[in-house]
C-alpha cells in the first residue's frame, strides 16, 4: 500500500466506521482502492505491514461469528497490530452488566481499535460514544454491517470494473438483514440499481423508501440482473414463523439454475455466508463457475485491512 497516512486522514475523515450511512462516495472509493492494494499484500509471501505496529486491536463479539472475527483478526495482524479476541456472549453481559459498564472496562485497557459485533441495532454506536478509541462496526442487529457491504462492492468492482449502472438483486431475508441495509446504502451511493426479492413476510415495512425496487417473484426480480446476492435464512425462521417450510422456500425463493437463467448471461452470484445449501441456494450454483462466494472471503480480509489502515490515520501518535 503506497498511500501515505496523511493522505488517508484527509480522504477518509472519520474516527469510527459505524455504518455506510454518512460516508461520501469518494470515501467509499478510497477504501476500495486501499483494499485493492491490500489484496496484493495478502497475496505476497511476506504479508506483514507495520501500519498498526504497537497498536492494540480488540475484537469484541457479543454474538458469535467465526468468519467475521477471524477476518478482522487476520486483517489486524497483517497490519502489525496486537489483536485480542473477546467473546462476551458468555461473560459479564449475561450477569446484567450494561454495555456502558463494558465500555468503561475496555477504556481502562487502552485499546486503539475496537471491532464490535452486537445483536442489538445501535449498540455499536452506543459503545463508540463511550470509548476513547476508534470503533469498527462488525454488525449491529439488523442495522448495518459496513465491512460486508464494502467487501461485496470490492468483489463486484474487480469483476465488473464499475459499480455504476449495474443491476444488483438482493434476495431472501431482507427483514432481518444488516447486510442488505448496508448494501442498499453503498450500492446506491455508487450508482447501482438495487432490487430486493423476497417473500412479503421477509420484507421490512416501507422498504421501497430505501432506494430499492421491490419484488416478491424471483423470475421478474432477477430479470437482466448483473449480480444476484443471496442472503442467509436463519433456521428459526424457516418453519412457519415467516415461511412455512424449507422446501417451499427453496421452491419459490431458492436460487437454482432455472431462476438464475432470468439474470444476464454473465450474471455473478454472491452470498455473505455462511450458506444454507438447499435452502436459499442450490449447491450447483453455490459451488459453480459463476459463484464469487469464496472470493468474497478473500476480499473480506483486504477490506478490513483497508478500514483499519484508514482509521489508523486518526489514531493519536503521542
Amino acid at each position: 500500500m503506497t498511500i501515505r497516512t496523511n493522505d488517508n486522514a484527509a480522504s477518509f475523515p472519520h474516527r469510527h466506521l459505524l455504518g455506510i450511512e454518512g460516508l461520501q462516495p469518494s470515501e467509499i472509493l478510497t477504501l476500495l482502492d486501499l483494499a485493492d492494494q491490500a489484496v496484493e499484500v495478502s497475496r505476497q509471501v511476506e504479508k506483514k505491514k507495520a501500519v498498526l505496529r504497537g497498536r492494540t486491536q480488540i475484537n469484541l463479539f457479543f454474538e458469535a461469528s467465526t468468519r467475521t472475527q477471524s477476518s478482522f483478526e487476520l486483517a489486524g495482524k497483517r497490519l502489525g497490530a496486537d489483536v485480542m479476541n473477546m467473546s462476551v456472549a458468555s461473560s459479564s453481559v449475561k450477569k446484567g452488566e450494561t454495555l456502558i459498564d463494558t465500555a468503561a472496562t475496555l477504556n481502562a485497557m487502552h485499546p486503539d481499535l475496537l471491532v464490535v459485533r452486537h445483536h442489538a441495532a445501535g449498540a455499536v454506536k452506543l459503545l463508540a460514544d463511550k470509548v476513547g478509541c476508534s470503533v469498527v462496526n462488525a454488525g449491529d442487529g439488523a442495522h448495518e454491517h459496513p465491512t460486508q457491504a464494502l467487501l461485496d462492492a470490492l468483489t463486484i468492482r474487480r469483476h465488473k470494473g464499475d459499480i455504476a449502472g449495474l443491476t444488483v438483486a438482493i434476495c431472501g431475508d431482507i427483514r432481518h438483514s444488516r447486510v442488505a441495509r448496508s448494501n442498499f446504502l453503498l450500492l446506491n451511493a455508487l450508482g447501482a440499481r438495487v432490487r430486493v426479492v423476497a417473500p412479503p413476510t421477509l420484507l421490512p415495512a416501507s422498504v421501497d423508501r430505501l432506494g430499492v425496487e421491490v419484488y416478491t417473484d424471483m423470475r421478474t426480480g432477477l430479470k437482466d440482473a448483473d449480480i444476484v446476492m443471496m442472503l442467509r435464512l436463519q433456521r428459526e425462521r424457516m418453519s412457519g414463523a415467516f415461511v412455512p417450510s424449507v422446501r417451499e422456500y427453496f421452491r419459490y425463493w431458492g436460487l437454482d439454475a432455472e431462476k438464475l437463467g432470468y439474470a444476464k448471461d454473465d450474471a455473478l452470484v454472491m452470498h455473505p455466508g455462511p450458506m444454507n445449501r438447499g435452502v436459499e441456494i442450490d449447491p450447483e450454483i453455490a459451488d459453480g463457475p459463476r459463484s464469487l462466494i469464496r472470493e468474497q472471503v478473500e476480499m473480506g480480509v483486504a477490506v478490513r485491512m483497508a478500514v483499519l489502515e484508514a482509521l489508523a490515520a486518526h489514531l493519536p501518535n503521542k
Binding site: 449491529d140 442495522h143 415495512a205 416501507s206
Partner: peptide, 11 residues
Amino acid sequence: GETATRLGLAG
C-alpha cells in the same frame, strides 16, 4: 415504518 426499517429495529 421507514424509520424503524432504516434503524434495523422491529416495528
